[in-house]
Design a protein around this nucleic acid. Structure first.
Lengths: 193, 193, 193, 193
DNA sequence: TATGAATGAGCTTTCATTCAT
DNA sequence: TATGAATGAAAGCTCATTCAT
């Protein structure tokens, strides 16, 4: 039941927005009554928090695996992190959209908690960049914090536009972005023009 | 008065969100009564639409200037477009955040109108990329539509994190992004590693 | 201007109802501003009262002519009164419908005034009936008050259903009603069946 | 509760009018809160519709019994229909007055529905008249549609004036009207004068 | 004569939440 | 576990009316 409620809420929050989805609609969709909802959750916000937790925890788990893998170079890691972002946004569009869009409806303490975890993701990017700069893999004049935000923006923005069944697969898009980020878009022979 | 209402609404919508800002709060902030609000606007949504129109129309104006400037190469134009995005997001943070966050509260017809204009911006990026590819300025294996979305994501995302008075100026950030997008982050001597 | 306001109000009150017509709509229809309306009338109700006065005073005038005409028998008078009702309802449909439908929105003192005048009309019917009964023109076992109400009902009800341009002229309908009221609908040869 | 709300609304709508009765007044009268009202009904108009449905459906039921009764001649049926109108208006004054006065506040689809049912009543009158004309019970030069409207007007109008506890019983009034409608008011010996 | 900005009270409706069962 | 009646606060919006100009 708890899982069912979360699933239904994810869908509805995605379609109509957190604020615009009423408990009434949720329980009607589920075919139960309001009482049932409040038996399992103490508020609508709690469900929203669970959706957030689920999403970000899953991300952090994958991130940890990447970061701890000693076989990977920093370049490999960055590639893997970027792919990770796409692999979470694209096949779980509903969750991702709720995650990115409804964040502000969390209550203060929950917001802090989620923000801290989002920062962990950002720091992973920063760390990989920094280490890659030190090792000579990446240019040594980058500002890792800003570049991280650029990469995150490029990738996360896809929650707004990616439509499954479009021209490209999610993996293809990830690779195009990696390419752009690694080598830029300028024609070699024509640098600086 | 109309301008005052828009200004106050921009602030409040930014701080609390469109849905969470009540007419009561708006008029209290302004020191007038509800009647006054509805004398100037027929609904809260109408104010939201005005904020959107203002933002996007200003953007389109600047974009037109860039695109029509025959002195600029495609590389120049892309640089100018990127700077344009930042220059609109960063000094007008409130407006920009309302623009990006509250879009979904526009009513259908208004949403369509704004979406069409947002698409014009996207198409400008696509066109510059495509022409730059043809002229040999940019790599010839890019997918201009996807790359545009990447660039837009990287830049627009800044509405979420940029804080005036931070470590870098807006122009500095724009340049870092342009650098990344043009030449990538890989160390030359170490390509492909 | 005063006349124009009354005319427009009559139309609008008829179409939408007194309560549902806003001052805003009235002045928009007239192409003036609210101030103008309140320059000529002190309230919306006052306009309604004028519409009522106009209608009922006109009726009373015609009624007085009929009642004072010494050439007419009581039968003639009753016929004339019935025709009078139709001739006022049918060519002035809007006024009549406002008169019958919006009466309750008059304020107490106005209501009393109009009610008194409506009673005068009713009493004319009663008097003609009573005198006609005395003179042997009408059956002598009628209850004039009740019969008056029956006649008034039959006639006034037409404000609800009469549509100009229909199958019958207003005068034809008046005559059918007079016929029914005078001689009934039973077939002579078949009385009491 | 639902029944209680309908009963209270009927009373209040009768006294003050539909538009003039606020939800606040309704729930205060009932000693509950607004929430309760909206738990049982989705709008004020819905209650109005229920009052209408109740009234007209009851009427149609009685009408069906009359029309299907093969023991009755057409004259009998017309008498019964007329009595039916009075028997519904007079002991249920509140309901009847709401039915006749507040019809226009129904929303379009509900209005249509009720209008269709009101037309059924009218058609019953027309049919009885027509058949009675064919069988020789009624004069053969009547226009059944117009005569029906006359009869309906005479009877229905009583919602405006009948006061329980007056000089006559409702049945007495019905009989006076039947008499007038069947045989007219002219003195036999004095026809045509 | 006419304007139009401003008022303020009131309206219908929504909704997250509670709680006795 | 689950129900569903009831709450109460607040929301967006309407509108007749006023009044300085």
């Amino acid at each position: 039941m708890k899982e069912q409620i979360i699933a239904t809420c994810t869908q509805l929050f995605e379609q109509k927005g957190f604020r615009e989805t009423s408990i009434q609609e949720i329980v009607e969709e589920l075919g139960v009554t309001k009482g049932t909802f409040y038996y399992y959750f103490s508020s609508k916000e709690q469900v929203l928090m669970m959706i957030h937790t689920k999403y970000i925890d899953h991300l952090l788990l994958q991130q940890a695996e990447i970061m701890q893998n000693k076989q990977l170079t920093n370049k490999d890691k960055l590639r893997a992190l970027i792919r990770m972002l796409f692999m979470n946004i694209i096949p779980n569009g509903d969750q991702a959209r709720v995650f990115f869009r409804e964040f502000r409806h969390l209550k203060d303490e929950h917001m802090k908690e989620v923000r801290a975890k989002r920062n962990q993701v950002r720091h992973a990017f920063e760390n990989v960049l920094r280490e890659g700069m030190d090792s000579g893999a990446f240019k040594n004049d980058l500002e890792p914090d800003i570049i991280s935000l650029g990469i995150l923006g490029a990738c996360n923005w896809s929650y707004q536009w990616f439509q499954p069944g479009g021209k490209y697969l999610d993996t293809e898009i990830a690779d195009m972005f990696i390419n752009m980020i690694y080598t830029g878009i300028e024609q070699e022979a024509n640098k600086g023009g």
